[in-house]
Deep mutational scan, measured.
Amino acid sequence: EHKIILYENPNFTGKKMEIIDDDVPSFHAHGYQEKVSSVRVQSGTWVGYQYPGYRGLQYLLEKGDYKDSSDFGAPHPQVQSVRR
C-alpha cells in the first residue's frame, strides 16, 4: 500500500489531502488548491512535482515526516501532482 498525506501549513496543520494507492496528476482537479507545506508519508515511496501533469521540480518523498517543504527540498511550498 502507498499512503501520503499533504498539509497546507507546516507541522501538519491546516487543510489536508490524503492519497491512498493512487497517482494524482492535478491536485486542483481533486479539489485541493492549497499550498503543500508539510507531508507525512505513511507507506511507500512517492515523487511530488511542482506543477500539474508531473512537471517542474521533482521531490522524492520516502516514508517519514516532512514538517516543512524545505525538508523535502522544495524552495516554495508548491506541489501540484504526485505519483507512486
Rank of each mutant, 00 (worst) to 15 (best):
R55Q: 12
A29W: 09
A74Q: 12
D71M: 14
Q78C: 15
V39W: 14
E8D: 07
M17N: 01
E34Q: 15
E8P: 05
E18V: 10
H28P: 14
S38N: 00
P52F: 00
Q33E: 12
V79L: 09
F27K: 09
H28Q: 10
P10Q: 07
V79S: 01
P77V: 12
Y7S: 01
D71H: 14
K3L: 04
I20M: 14
F27I: 11
H2D: 08
I19V: 15
A74D: 05
V24S: 06
Y54I: 00
N9V: 00
W46E: 00
D68E: 11
E18Y: 05
V79F: 14
A74E: 15
R40Y: 14
D65Q: 07
Y54V: 02
A74S: 15
Q33W: 12
I20N: 15
R55F: 03
D68F: 12
S70W: 10
S26P: 01
P10R: 08
K63H: 06
D65G: 09
V47P: 03
I19P: 05
V79Q: 03
G44E: 01
S70A: 08
E8C: 07
D22M: 08
D21P: 03
K15C: 04
K15V: 05
Y66R: 08
K3W: 00
K16R: 07
Q50H: 07
R55S: 10
N9R: 12
I19Q: 10
D65A: 11
K3Q: 07
H30T: 14
Q58E: 15
A74H: 15
S70I: 11
D21N: 10
F27M: 11
E62D: 06
R55K: 14
H28I: 07
Q78M: 06
L60T: 13
Q50L: 02
Y32A: 07
H2R: 08
A29S: 09
D71A: 13
S70F: 12
D65C: 07
D22V: 05
Y59F: 08
P25F: 01
Y32I: 15
V39S: 01
V39L: 12
K35G: 13
G31I: 15
G53R: 15
Y7H: 02
D21L: 00
P10D: 05
Q42H: 06
N9A: 09
K15M: 05
S37I: 02
S26A: 12
E18L: 07
Y54A: 03
K16A: 10
V79C: 03
V79E: 15
D71L: 09
H2S: 13
D65Y: 01
D65H: 09
G48A: 10
Q58H: 06
A74I: 15
Y66W: 10
Q58F: 15
D23E: 02
V24A: 11
R84P: 01
E8V: 03
G64E: 04
V41K: 02
P77N: 09
E34L: 14
K63Q: 11
H28G: 14
L61V: 03
D22G: 09
D21W: 06
Y66N: 15
V47I: 13
Y66E: 01
K67S: 15
E34M: 15
S26Q: 06
Y66L: 06
D21E: 15
G31K: 06
G44N: 05
E34K: 08
G64S: 00
V39R: 02
P25G: 05
R84K: 04
L6E: 02
D68Q: 12
Q78T: 15
D68I: 14
V39H: 08
K63I: 12
V39I: 11
Y59W: 08
S43F: 05
P52A: 08
E62K: 10
K35D: 00
E62L: 07
I4W: 02
A29I: 01
V24P: 00
Y49L: 04
H30I: 12
D65P: 01
E62Y: 13
D68H: 07
H28N: 15
S69N: 10
E34P: 09
Y66D: 00
L60N: 15
K16S: 11
S69M: 15
K35S: 11
N9H: 10
V36P: 09
H76M: 15
H76W: 12
T45C: 10
E8W: 00
D21F: 00
P77S: 11
Y66T: 04
E1M: 06
D21H: 03
D22S: 11
